Simulated assay, not measured.
Amino acid sequence: MAKFGFSNIVQGVLGNMNEENKESLSKEYSQYLFDNEEIQSGYKLIRDAIIFTNLRIIFVDKQGATGRKTSFKSIYLSHIVDVEMETAGTGFDDSEITITYLTNINRIARHEVLESRKFEFPKQTDIVPLYKFFGNLAMKNRAEINQVSV
């Protein structure tokens, strides 16, 4: 079974994506990183990519026939407030993790604007460590938002 570390946090995410090494990702995407941001891991499918940094999850969508136009969308790790897990059953089921995150700029209780993003994994992938990572992050973020000690 595949195990998760932060270096391969989303093995198998989004179907047929292949893991890319940090050097390759840095060469292509480092100009788009923020101050003190570092690539932890990333995956590519033809032209598109998903990159995990120490600050955010970046979705790269190269558009058009030439791929010169590129869209970058982020989910900030500090905005993740919930996680759900669905393990694979028998047959062709895949495992799933859904994260819910704040989309509004202010992390203030009772003023949340939320969205969710689902990640699908092959059935043989052990998703429990990823679920725990996101769960611990969500608990920390909720405590900060609600100004409660964890």
Results as ranks from 00 to 15, higher is better:
residue 39 I to P: 03
residue 39 I to Y: 03
residue 39 I to K: 05
residue 40 Q to W: 04
residue 40 Q to E: 08
residue 40 Q to F: 05
residue 41 S to F: 04
residue 41 S to N: 10
residue 42 G to W: 01
residue 42 G to M: 03
residue 43 Y to C: 00
residue 43 Y to P: 03
residue 43 Y to R: 07
residue 44 K to E: 05
residue 44 K to M: 04
residue 45 L to S: 07
residue 46 I to F: 09
residue 47 R to K: 12
residue 47 R to L: 06
residue 47 R to Q: 09
residue 48 D to Q: 03
residue 48 D to V: 00
residue 50 I to Q: 06
residue 50 I to D: 02
residue 52 F to H: 01
residue 53 T to Q: 06
residue 53 T to V: 02
residue 53 T to C: 04
residue 54 N to H: 04
residue 54 N to D: 12
residue 54 N to G: 02
residue 54 N to I: 02
residue 56 R to Q: 03
residue 56 R to Y: 00
residue 56 R to C: 00
residue 56 R to P: 00
residue 57 I to Y: 04
residue 57 I to V: 06
residue 57 I to R: 05
residue 60 V to Q: 02
residue 60 V to M: 01
residue 61 D to N: 15
residue 61 D to R: 11
residue 62 K to N: 12
residue 62 K to R: 15
residue 62 K to T: 08
residue 63 Q to V: 03
residue 63 Q to M: 12
residue 64 G to E: 04
residue 65 A to W: 11
residue 65 A to Y: 12
residue 65 A to D: 13
residue 66 T to W: 13
residue 66 T to M: 15
residue 66 T to E: 14
residue 67 G to D: 10
residue 67 G to W: 12
residue 68 R to F: 15
residue 68 R to S: 14
residue 69 K to M: 12
residue 69 K to I: 11
residue 69 K to C: 02
residue 70 T to M: 15
residue 70 T to L: 06
residue 70 T to V: 15
residue 70 T to F: 05
residue 71 S to E: 15
residue 71 S to M: 09
residue 71 S to Q: 14
residue 72 F to N: 09
residue 73 K to T: 14
residue 73 K to P: 03
residue 74 S to C: 09
residue 74 S to K: 09
residue 75 I to Y: 09
residue 75 I to L: 02
residue 75 I to A: 05
residue 76 Y to H: 08
residue 76 Y to A: 01
residue 76 Y to N: 08
residue 77 L to F: 07
residue 77 L to T: 02
residue 77 L to K: 03
residue 78 S to A: 05
residue 80 I to N: 01
residue 80 I to Y: 00
residue 81 V to E: 03
residue 81 V to A: 00
residue 81 V to P: 01
residue 81 V to Y: 01
residue 81 V to Q: 03
residue 82 D to S: 09
residue 82 D to Q: 07
residue 82 D to E: 10
residue 83 V to H: 05
residue 84 E to A: 08
residue 84 E to H: 06
residue 84 E to I: 00
residue 84 E to P: 00
residue 85 M to R: 14
residue 86 E to C: 01
residue 86 E to M: 08
residue 86 E to H: 07
residue 86 E to N: 10
residue 87 T to A: 07
residue 87 T to M: 14
residue 88 A to Y: 10
residue 88 A to C: 08
residue 88 A to S: 15
residue 88 A to W: 10
residue 89 G to K: 15
residue 89 G to Q: 13
residue 90 T to Y: 10
residue 90 T to N: 11
residue 90 T to E: 12
residue 90 T to H: 06
residue 91 G to V: 04
residue 92 F to H: 05
residue 92 F to T: 06
residue 94 D to S: 12
residue 94 D to P: 03
residue 94 D to G: 06
residue 94 D to A: 11
residue 95 S to E: 08
residue 95 S to Y: 07
residue 95 S to M: 04
residue 95 S to P: 06
residue 96 E to H: 13
residue 96 E to N: 11
residue 96 E to M: 10
residue 97 I to F: 13
residue 97 I to A: 08
residue 98 T to P: 09
residue 98 T to M: 15
residue 99 I to Y: 13
residue 99 I to L: 14
residue 99 I to F: 11
residue 99 I to P: 11
residue 100 T to D: 10
residue 100 T to V: 12
residue 101 Y to E: 10
residue 101 Y to L: 05
residue 102 L to A: 09
residue 102 L to H: 09
residue 102 L to Q: 15
residue 102 L to T: 01
